[in-house]
Amino acid sequence: MKKAQHTPHIPFAARLLERRDLSEDTTLFRIAPEEGALAELSSFVPGQFVQLSVPGAGEIPISPADLPAPDGTLELCVRRVGHVTELLHKQQTGARLGIRGPFGSGFPLREMAGRPVLLLAGGLGIAPLRSLLMHLLRQRSSYGEVTLMYGAKQPRLMLFREELTALAATGGLRLYLTVDFAPETSEGEYSCAIGLLPDLLKGFRFDAVNTYAAVCGPPPLYRCLVTDLERAGVAAERILLSLERRMRCGIGRCCHCALGQKLCCVDGPVFRASELKGIPEAL
């Protein structure tokens, strides 16, 4: 399907409104895109991504951590890890940024309606899944049971912890938190399991036949979770994976994000596990 935009390479202006540190290296940035960007951004579907420009450094693909707010502002959860994010993390409120998008395909919400949804997030993988989670909770009655299993390396690296706990307290979300390990000093302080995500999944009883699973996390996580989910009875068509690739142009040409004949920026970043079966380098 040909997109109507004539200049998809030109970013709209955006202003940094607010920043909130979530951990030692990860910050939630709230940005206000200029008015011209809002029509396109309002079409955002959880799982899609935007290209964020940091003048002087370049562009990075970021999957927003929530749907655009009614005033058009957007939350981006970004870890300081490369030269663009390094400069972004130095920006103060009011800084001038750029944004284009949204690009790619998000989660198949229409198809998921009425079904239970199991979200599996590892580390920073919570960021793209948070936009899906917020959507599900806002349209709570349109979906079945919503469960989030979220694993982080250790308690202090767990993002959105208080917020997620508060959401779970309202009764609309079943929340399971786990950490790979917890330093001794934190014993008794955190009520979460110690172990890996697949361990959490192992003891979990759910309506596998009807459930849609949404997975995002570090690369080694996918292969292992897809196997476990399929073993539990979730069909590969309903295992939705949000993949990370080095998406540069965002519009299907530069080839950096190719997985076999598919392109993460156009065909993804959300793929069904069934689509990736014949593509050995995908997972």
Partner: peptide
Amino acid sequence: HCFDINDEGST
């Protein structure tokens, strides 16, 4: 035809 995109200049 693959390419990369980079910024050159200051902030």
